[in-house]
Design a binder for these strands. Structure first.
Length: 563
RNA sequence: UGCCCCGUGGUGUAAUUGGCAACACAAGGGAUUUUGGUUCCUUUAUUCUAGGUUCGAGUCCUAGCGGGGUAGCCA
């Protein structure tokens, strides 16, 4: 995998607690760490899920335990198989394989039997309150609620009604099954929470078999219990649900996993909520869930991010209970670090200016080039060199500042892997735009020659031979949002107002011949520019489309900005 | 305005559970470099505040301040 070695210096609080539990809790004797990744199949996975995936599967890996993939499919109106398929693909792409694949819907019958048990024990009742009424009865953050007038129905009546709910006798919303806990509890989740609601909806797996569906709280802990999960790890917003998770397991008298919460990831210049990501897609602000600008796993994959770079990123951000925002720079540097070690280097000119070497013959010469200075096994290649070249427009300045080490009138620069050239003449069109540079080369400075090592120039620039170059489409991606926190908007505005209007720029670039042959999915470095990936959707044989993954660090841009 | 959770360099996490505040990333400075990339060296903290316990407090106690979660028949 050639994965950068992660920082393994310290354990996170979850690992510490797991180790403590296994040392102290008799119920865990002889067991192995068992976790699960439990997405609801109602959207595509994003980078925040990657954190959870790396955590859950990583825990199983480091402790020699297991991790299941479980689809939390208890709300058929929002879920479908397209999402199921994409989630499985994303988890596997990240390099993880689940020990078992389950769906909460696998447990619908067992959950129903357990509900019957609670009713018989007098711990659950059928309630006829409408959702509005239930809200009134619930009380507020500061005031206790009142008991439902249906709370004291007999066990027989509850049993009868609940079975008829299941049989489909009542319309959506007519009744619910609720746990009988405490309407005065400080934790609102304990104020007789709903366990089942009536929904005459088609489920992507169970079809029309059910018209009552369990709520998250009634399904999750028991699903964990059935699977023998030792540590049920979720995000901080479920913290207030833990007492209910515990109550159900205890009241049912079943194996009781431990729920632990960690902080969800926030990334600067990014929105992460499924609702907003969905909106970006449906309102066509992006081209789809896998648009290379999306923070979805599929978007990052298409952009060119590697699984290893995402693992590196997750190692770097850590796991804690503090709500923090990660600078997107950390993500960008993670992929730079990985790609630096694996990506072959090529030369590409995105914004060309023609260079004519007046004293060079009308012939082609082939020059040796190193594919990856970080990896000798990447080998070498031959580059065609000729009289007419393209260089990057920004590598020439007519009136440069003192620290500009590139080409200038009368100045010298090395052409990477080739010769040192001198700019003799600047050709302009009628309106004063520079259209061509006339240069001379020094034949004694050929790369690799003994004489070449004696001549030093400050700058080395990249180039392509005009007659040998291919023209390819390159998409230069930038951040999707202008603001560090896109959701931070004045009244009347939305996060959509913070969209970067220039988040993608498409250019036609001149590239060295090798580059036109690259296969979809291949990641390369355009020397002195950035990392690019051959798009997997829009490329055609011999006609690759390149997505910019991330630019190279640009120290010169900082220097130039200062002066 | 209840209940719950959380405050450690610029950012994100550590600190053998009461014993010299560390690591990574970023930023600044320098060296190397045929990528202004990479690599190497180097510089960056009254641990939110105020009290208290203690030989000793980031860690324990009290009060305050600040941030987050929570009133779906969503997850």
């Amino acid at each position: 995998m050639n994965e950068p070695t992660p920082n393994e210096t310290s354990k996170n609080f979850i690992e510490l607690e797991i180790e403590k539990d296994f040392a102290n809790k008799p119920v865990l004797a002889g067991k192995k760490v068992a976790t699960r990744f439990p997405p609801e199949p109602n959207g595509y996975l994003h980078i925040g899920h990657a954190k959870s995936i790396c955590l859950n599967f990583g825990l199983a890996r480091t402790y020699g335990g297991t991790c299941n993939l479980r689809f939390d499919d208890t709300n058929p109106t929002k879920e479908n198989d397209e999402y199921v398929q994409s989630i499985m693909a994303d988890v596997q792409w990240l390099g993880f394989q689940w020990d078992a694949l389950y769906y909460a819907s696998d447990y619908f019958e067992q959950l129903y039997q357990w509900a019957l048990q609670l009713i018989r024990d007098g711990k659950a009742f059928v309630c006829d309150l409408s959702s509005e009424q239930m809200r009134e009865y619930r009380g507020t953050l500061t005031e206790p609620g009142k008991n439902s007038p249906f709370r004291d129905r007999s066990v027989e009546e509850n049993l009868d009604l609940f079975q008829r709910m299941k049989a489909g006798e009542f319309p959506d919303g007519a009744r619910t099954l609720r746990a009988k806990i405490d309407m005065a509890a400080h934790n609102l989740n304990l104020r007789d929470p709903v366990m089942y609601r009536i929904m005459h909806a088609h489920h992507h797996r169970t079809g029309d078999k059910w018209c009552i569906y369990p709520m998250y709280d009634w399904a999750h802990g028991q699903s964990d219990s059935i699977e023998g999960i030792t540590h049920s790890i979720c995000t901080l917003e479920f913290e207030n649900h833990r007492p209910l998770y515990d109550w159900f397991c205890q009241t049912l008298g079943i194996y009781h996993p431990r729920q632990m919460e960690f902080a969800r990831m926030n990334l600067s210049y990014t929105v992460m909520s499924k609702r907003k990501l969905l909106q970006l897609v449906t309102e066509k602000h992006v081209e789809g869930w896998d648009d290379p600008r999306m923070p979805t796993i599929s978007g990052l994959r298409r952009r060119g991010y590697t699984p290893e770079s995402l693992h590196l990123f997750c190692d770097r951000i850590g796991v804690a209970r503090f709500n923090s925002t990660i600078d997107v720079i950390v993500l960008e540097n993670s992929v730079r670090d990985h790609l630096n070690s694996i990506a072959s280097r090529y030369m590409a000119i995105l914004d060309p200016i023609k260079v004519v070497i007046t004293n060079y013959p009308d012939s082609t010469e082939y020059l040796g080039a190193v594919n990856n200075p970080e990896d000798e096994s990447a080998g070498t290649r031959q580059l065609p060199f000729s009289k007419e070249l393209y260089i990057e427009r920004e590598d020439f300045m007519e009136n440069p500042p003192s620290k500009f080490f590139r080409l200038k009138p009368g100045g010298e620069v090395r052409l990477r892997y080739a010769y040192i050239i001198r700019c003799e003449e600047v050709i302009k069109d009628a309106s004063g735009n520079i259209v061509e540079l006339r240069c001379t080369y020094d034949p004694d400075t050929k790369s690799g020659s003994a004489a070449a090592s004696e001549r030093k120039v400050k700058g080395t620039i990249h180039w392509v031979s005009a007659q040998h170059a291919s023209s390819v489409k390159v998409r230069l991606y930038d951040r999707l949002f202008l603001n560090e926190n896109p959701e931070d908007v004045p009244a009347g505005k939305t996060f959509l107002d913070n969209i970067n209007p220039n988040s993608v720029q498409v250019v036609q670039a001149f590239v060295e011949p090798e580059l036109a042959k690259q296969e979809p999915g291949t990641r390369v470095q355009f020397e002195r520019n950035g990392y690019y990936c051959v798009d997997t959707k829009d490329s055609k044989p011999g006609q690759p489309v390149f997505n910019r993954i991330v630019t190279l660090k640009d120290t010169w841009a900082k220097i130039a900005a200062k002066s």
